[in-house]
C-alpha cells in the first residue's frame, strides 16, 4: 500500500512562522510536501471558522504557527490564537475528529530548523492517526458556520 501522505494546512503568521518557513527554504531544510502554508498577518487573525473549514474541506491536520510567547508583533495575538485553538480542539472532539489533528506551535523568524522539524513531526503524527475521518464522508460539520 502506498504511504498515506497527510495534507496539513499551516496558518503561519507573517512575522515569525512564515519567515521561519522562508528560512527553512533558504537553508534547504526539507519538510513534507503535504504541509501547505497560508500566510496571515498574525495568528490572532486565524478564526475558528478557518480551522473548521480546513477540516471540512479535507485537511488531515491543521497547524497554527505563531511567534514565541511575548514576541507577537501585535502584543498577544498568538496568545489569543492559542485560546481559540484550545477551544476548537474541544469542538473537534465533540464532532468526532481527533483533537491532535490541530496544533498550535510557536517559533521565531530565525527558527528555520524548528519549522522543518515541527512540520515533519506533525506530519508523522497525523500519518499515524490516518486520514481525517471527514474524508470520504458527507460530513456537515462547519456547514452551519
Amino acid at each position: 500500500m502506498e504511504q498515506f501522505e497527510p495534507v496539513i494546512v499551516a496558518f503561519c503568521c507573517h512575522y515569525c512562522a512564515y519567515t521561519a518557513a522562508d528560512t527553512a527554504g533558504s537553508q534547504r531544510l526539507s519538510y513534507p510536501v503535504g504541509v501547505k502554508i497560508v500566510r496571515v498577518p498574525c495568528t490572532g487573525k486565524v478564526d475558528a471558522k478557518h480551522l473548521l473549514t480546513a477540516f471540512e474541506k479535507g485537511a488531515d491536520g491543521v497547524l497554527v504557527a505563531g511567534c514565541l510567547v511575548g514576541d507577537c508583533h501585535f502584543k498577544d495575538g498568538n496568545v489569543k490564537a492559542a485560546r481559540r485553538v484550545e477551544f476548537t480542539k474541544k469542538y473537534l472532539e465533540e464532532i468526532g475528529i481527533e483533537a491532535e489533528r490541530l496544533e498550535m506551535v510557536r517559533m521565531s523568524a530565525g527558527m528555520g530548523r524548528e519549522f522543518a522539524e515541527t512540520a515533519t513531526a506533525i506530519t508523522e503524527k497525523i500519518r499515524a492517526l490516518g486520514p481525517s475521518p471527514v474524508k470520504g464522508k458527507n460530513c456537515c460539520c462547519g456547514k452551519a458556520a
Partner: peptide
C-alpha cells in the same frame, strides 16, 4: 489600526 486582524477573528 495595526492590521493584525484579531478583531476580525473574534
Amino acid at each position: 489600526c495595526h492590521g493584525c486582524g484579531t478583531c476580525a477573528a473574534e
